[in-house]
Design a protein around this nucleic acid. Structure first.
Lengths: 261, 261
DNA sequence: AACTAAGTTTCAAATAATGAAACCAAGTTA
DNA sequence: TAACTTGGTTTCATTATTTGAAACTTAGTT
């Protein structure tokens, strides 16, 4: 029941569509790619704009995701994501291993990178936080899937595209499932250049006390710098970080429930 | 007609409410502060959760803004905000003046800080982007208001709280309007410790070729380090940045309208 | 066993969303 | 200048969705 609950679901679908263009769009472009009839889409766009969820540029006649999202995301990132909780651990880990560290969470069938740390250059982070990737061919994606309860897993598996990016990309549910079993058994997973040639990573899940998947950590490198065995040797170190993050997440108590002032 | 258009508007109101708590909330806390009846609010929360706009923590029974927002905000920040366009100018300005520079935009009656640069310590920015402030007592807020067309201005003025933060805070529309006239005449405005004692700033608007308010830039300092005259001397330098940003914003052409691949 | 609080479900009535079609405004083109 | 576009906006009867009081379910109290 994930997609399309009521009017709100449809409106958010429109919002996603605008966002997916990656640039401001005309109404006419939107209508071409939309399942909704003109008048309906028109009203959604109007409503979203009036709500600042979309921003209308009157000079150009284009729509883009609006600033209200930036405000809401600020809250989301602080409260719902592991990023602020994990910050210290991610910093440390990245410094220790000298490679790029990703912190990701699952949103439906997609992986969302909520934080990233690059030992070498401390890149500006907003540009990275919020980036999405496919779950079925990334280290973090597979690792999170591996620890999902069966029903949710089935759901997520059904929503993957299985597009072949490289010749190691999984292209069927079966082969993917087989690997997920391995990951579950080992406690960690790899990205074997499945998404981009030359890019490999190890990934560990971040699990709550009740074994829910909270997110995943990964250390990424290139085949020119190291290999899977090299990355595997980092597992114990990453495990420390993952455990520490999980622990903090569960003890994370919010300011004693003060009545709203 | 800004607030409460249809079901979508109500759902977003709920989303805002959750975000405004600043921490994960129980359903019961939400209902206490909500105008909606139990069943209605319940359904909204369900819908938003199923859409990943809210995240439900089953261990604690709490709701928080969801990760989907982070993904959407990524798009918003890149496309709708001035931040990526202004980056270079903000960097330069901050380095030149050696003070904190803010880049802000207006969302309804609120100011949203979309970027911030601190010369001294290059602080992680996501934590700041998305932060909101009151329009009526911040330099950027007043400056943006000053250049709004009358009807919009009236709207925004009506939505301010006029809460007295310090003894220089404007507490009435009249006194605020008077200052806005000055700002419009001068082309820049100050924050005279109106929001926080000891904190002062100068702010300039970023205006499109058609004179629409795109945002505002400000340089903030403290009364111990400088004074209003000191900040005023920076106006020409800030003006250069503001103009450059406006120019880039208007020439900002997106990748030639390629049909969707 | 009788309460209470928090969360969830029902269902007829009220309301809001829907979308085909008409309309408007700027451009073409002939 | 008149007949076509193309992109955007409005109307309005029909249809589907939302609404919310009330009943119900847990899971904790007392």
């Amino acid at each position: 029941m994930a997609s399309g609950d009521g009017t709100v679901g449809k409106a958010l679908e429109v919002l996603d569509q605008v966002a997916s263009f990656g640039r401001p769009v005309r109404f006419s472009e939107l209508i071409d790619a939309s399942p909704f009839p003109k008048a309906t889409l028109y009203r959604f766009v109007q409503t979203l704009t009036s709500q600042s969820m979309l921003a209308y540029d009157p000079d150009r006649g284009t729509y883009a995701p609006g600033v209200r999202l930036v405000r809401l995301a600020h809250a989301a990132w602080q409260q719902a994501s592991l990023a602020p909780i994990a910050r210290a651990q991610v910093d440390q880990l990245s410094a220790d291993v000298g490679e790029t560290v990703h912190l990701a969470q699952l949103d439906h069938a997609q992986v969302i990178y909520v934080d990233k740390r690059n030992a070498a250059d401390p890149v500006q982070m907003y540009s990275q936080a919020g980036k999405v990737g496919p779950a079925y061919c990334t280290g973090v994606g597979k690792t999170m899937m591996a620890f999902l309860p069966e029903e949710e897993l089935a759901d997520v598996l059904g929503q993957q595209s299985y597009h072949r990016f490289t010749d190691t990309t999984h292209t069927s549910v079966e082969s993917l499932r087989a690997e997920l079993d391995d990951i579950r058994a080992n406690g960690y997973g790899f990205d074997r250049e499945e998404h981009e040639p030359g890019i490999i990573c190890v990934s560990l899940p971040i699990l709550s006390e009740t074994n829910r998947v909270l997110g995943a950590l990964s250390v990424t490198s290139t085949t020119t710098r190291t290999n899977l065995a090299g990355l595997e040797s980092l597992v114990p170190r990453i495990k420390i970080a993952a455990t520490a993050i999980a622990k903090e997440a569960s003890s994370w108590q919010f300011p004693a429930t003060v009545a709203n002032s």
